[in-house]
């Protein structure tokens, strides 16, 4: 029982990174129709930025949780303005290739500048230690990660459902042509939404910094799992991204505990099963066949 509680917390903590990043991926796909392959690289940049800011100006994790996503927001908007925008009218495959190329570029630039061994990171001491729950010591930091992820996901959900901006974004996600026909300027929201999605990946990176090895390659495996997450949740579905993220985290943790050899395979088995049963994913909208 104690072990199950521990595995659950570990699974949810890992799932937090997936949920946050997948949320960004879903929002971007929803509004722009772009499958952002550079999302893993943006996650990596978030972690690297946190480590570099700590090292150079002594910025603590608390501040980095706000500053780094803001930096990534600006960076994401620049990427959209300067690169992604030009390819939007073309086949979606062009942006797939663009973001894939961007990943290779960013990873190599970080390698060149910061080497391959990774960067050190120390979290604030307030997040050290463990809390006792039902006789099990649970790491404070993992609980903190879960808490932040849930809060952000809740915030994004409220933003999407309770505000006018959210309404427009949702309308643009669900029926872009219709939203445009009704006089909503969808184009105006494209740049900030892309930036917002990138900021979420950056936030996941900052949260991962104290817990994972900060290397140029840290996003390479992450993005693969992330695509499994959005396929399971349903491409473009916001709720699906969050549920899929936590679900995959849990599958990973329990897989590691009870079937270590198959831990990673299990995620893709889950993906295959979901796609077979519901091709649009758990929360994806079934499309009328053309």
């Amino acid at each position: 029982m104690n072990a199950v509680l521990q595995y659950t917390v570990q699974g949810l903590a890992a799932g937090s990174f997936y949920a946050l990043a997948a949320l960004g991926l879903a929002v971007i796909f929803g509004v722009l129709g772009v499958v952002n392959f550079a999302h893993g690289a943006f996650y990596m940049l978030g972690a690297v930025a946190a480590a570099v800011l700590l090292d150079t100006v002594g910025m603590s994790l608390w501040l980095a949780l706000i500053v780094v996503p803001l930096l990534m927001l600006v960076f994401g908007m620049l990427v959209e303005r300067l690169l992604v925008r030009w390819l939007l009218p073309l086949d979606p495959l062009y942006n797939l290739l663009l973001t894939f190329g961007l990943t290779l570029l960013l990873v190599d630039l970080v390698k060149r500048r910061y080497g391959v061994s990774g960067l050190p990171y120390e979290r604030p001491s307030a997040l050290d230690g463990r809390v006792q729950l039902a006789g099990v010591g649970l790491p404070v930091y993992q609980l903190f990660v879960i808490g932040v992820a849930l809060l952000v996901c809740l915030g994004v959900w409220l933003l999407m459902t309770r505000t006018r901006v959210g309404m427009i974004v949702r309308a643009a996600t669900e029926r872009p042509e219709l939203a445009g026909a009704l006089g909503i300027n969808v184009g105006r929201w494209v740049t900030p939404v892309f930036g917002f999605g990138v900021a979420l990946a950056g936030l996941a990176g900052v949260l991962a910094a104290p817990f994972r090895a900060i290397t140029a390659e840290m996003g390479s495996d992450f993005i693969i799992i992330l695509f499994a997450v959005v396929v399971i949740g349903g491409l473009g579905s916001i709720v699906g991204a969050v549920v899929g993220g936590f679900l995959v985290g849990l599958v990973e943790a329990f897989g590691q505990a009870y079937a270590p050899t198959f831990a990673q395979v299990l995620i893709f088995v889950l993906m295959a099963v979901v796609v077979l049963a519901r091709p649009a994913g758990l929360f994806g909208r079934e499309e009328a066949t053309a």
Binding site: V35, P92, F100, F227, A228, V231, L235, G236, A290
Partner: peptide, 23 residues
């Protein structure tokens, strides 16, 4: 709306490419 499906398929193919890119 077939675009969406194309993209979904393509992204899965690309994920496969990524897995093997290291090789």
């Amino acid at each position: 709306m077939n675009k969406r499906r194309t993209v979904a398929t393509a992204s899965m193919v690309m994920a496969g490419v990524l897995v093997t890119a290291g090789c």
